[in-house]
Design a protein around this nucleic acid. Structure first.
Lengths: 330, 330
DNA sequence: TTGAAAGCGTTACCAA
DNA sequence: TTGGTAACGCTTTCAA
């Protein structure tokens, strides 16, 4: 591997000059610069990142730690972050905490060890509770999940409003006994519950929330139990895509047909929800905007570490499809 | 940040000894070692990875470059790779090439710049064609996609056999005019086509392959055109999950009901395929095994760089569901 | 505008 | 078994 020394030798200049051509080319006179650039090309020189980091005590690298890499939500967010980061000469490292606080912690430590310039994090519930953003040697931006008390920049959906709108939509279409499948382990589940409860309260109706692990299996079990019970709901709202999938599974297994037998709506506009045979009403999140905003907040904080923390709230879009068209409708 | 010097000073030993405690503790006598360990704990010392890399000229880091991070296939593979890597003290960096050869190339360069110990790659078609595994400064293991001529370790599905089995299953259930939705841009599509053609040839039937971008939209368009045409097939086989989704979209939009009006089967046992309202026959890939095997091949090659390249072929499982039960069946 | 030299934190070599 | 010292490749003073 050619080093900066080899380049300097070949170009007949000092290593300082080569370094300058790499970082601030305009500070080197044209003829010399071209000489150096030629040597770089001829030797196929690539700077050693480890050496650069050691010297600069900072890596041109941002981390994105997500709780579930499988969800379309986070991959879209990741794409947006990468786009912004790349334009600013920053590399992105993607980490999947898999909803495991220990893994999350371990990745944060990895980022510290790697001297990352910044980290964007969608924390687990446990991780969020004990999170001390100031304790990390890099700026931290939270996405998707955050508490009002957290002193860090954050980008979140207006979960409460989105859930309220979805619930109102079900109410408008004639459903009255609306059950909520809500995920524990996340602030989003709680906020979505709040919006749901709010909409029902405005109509003087009783909420029927069910709390569970945010998995397909839990959603299926809870829904099956609900449908087998005496006080059967006439509509279901699921607070994320996996719970929605589980709910559909149970509804279909019970031989029920939305929207007639039961209304269905849920968060996350996953690709399969638009299949005509399912045609599920969903809340679509502005995933790309969320990621882009998070990356921009991070870059700003990197430049201005002392500015006060900001929260950006984005809106979800209700995608109305057939599954919530109203009881008795085909 | 405390450095190894601070630890040495506090423990009253040389930096060499501290370094040894970190890498080969058994080479340091117990009392001294404990002294050092105490100092490390008290100072909350963390080794500087950049310095370590600069010195060792190797990062304890493996890269996984996938063509589509969204697919369950690659996230499962990633989890398996991470498990194995973690057990061997290696960090995993996940990169998404998004089927873009330029991005793939750029990530390979990133891995070289980072002095990665090894890389696992699912190459794009263009990337595979011009891939020179020996040209990279790290061992390379291919997953999912590879050519027989590629001189690198590789782990692949027996795509041809899997496609043959799926086709035979459709034939066994009475379908005769079976169309194939195959993705260009990948060797898997071609191999799956071969198995499909083989099964049809054995029955003296004509293949009806359609080549397209491996996207939902392309699958939908192609299927819609197929269904609107004169020589309408009585079954469809899709070579990946997105094409399957697109095919279902078009079939349902046309008001057709599998398995009666048309048989459906496809690769990738995605979570939504088991919904009762869809109940799609699929080929499930042993994703975790694929990832684990790839990681193991990589570790072996890191230890023994000169061993000849090996190919590991794993089998897919046909998951029979209702969508292929036979024409005229409900 | 250019160059010399120091130093980032670690490990590897050699000597004790 | 332990320690001194050089070196990894780069950037950043500082001086010319």
């Amino acid at each position: 591997m050619a080093s900066i020394k080899d380049v300097a030798q070949r170009a007949g200049v000092s290593t300082t000059t080569v370094s300058r051509v790499l970082s601030t080319p305009e500070a080197v006179r044209a003829p010399l610069r071209e000489q150096v650039e030629r040597a770089i090309a001829e030797l196929a020189y690539r700077p050693n990142l480890a050496a650069r980091r050691l010297r600069q005590r900072r890596a041109s690298l941002v981390g994105l730690i997500v709780s579930d890499i499988r969800s379309a939500f986070f991959t879209d967010v990741g794409r947006a972050v990468e786009d912004v980061a790349y334009r600013h000469g920053l590399r992105l490292i993607l980490c999947n905490s898999d909803e495991d606080p220990a893994k999350e912690q371990s990745y944060l430590e990895l980022m510290a060890d790697e001297q990352a310039s910044g980290v964007i994090l969608s924390p687990t519930m446990a991780g969020l509770k004990q999170l001390r953003p100031q304790a990390w040697p890099f700026p931290l931006v939270l996405v998707d999940r955050a508490m009002d008390t957290t002193r860090a920049d954050r980008v979140v959906l207006d979960n409460q409003a989105a859930a309220r709108r979805a619930t109102e939509h079900l109410l408008d279409n004639g459903y009255r006994r609306i059950a909520l499948l809500a995920g524990t382990h996340s602030t989003t589940g709680q906020q979505r519950h709040a919006g749901y409860a709010e909409a029902l309260a405005a109509c003087g109706l009783a909420p029927q929330p069910l709390w569970m692990d945010p998995t397909r299996e839990a959603g299926e079990r809870a829904t099956a139990a609900l449908l087998a019970g005496t006080d059967r709901p006439d509509a279901l709202l699921a607070t994320n895509g996996l719970l929605l999938l589980g709910a559909l599974q149970a509804v279909q297994a019970a031989g029920l047909h939305p929207p007639r037998d039961i209304g269905i709506a849920g968060f996350d506009n996953n690709d399969w929800t638009s299949l005509p045979a399912l045609d599920v009403t969903t809340i679509a999140q502005p995933t790309y905007d969320i990621g882009r905003t998070a990356a921009e907040l991070l870059l700003q904080r990197m430049q201005e570490p002392e500015r006060p923390a900001r929260q950006v709230v984005l809106e979800g879009a209700l995608v109305v499809r057939g599954s919530s068209a109203g009881p008795g409708r085909r």
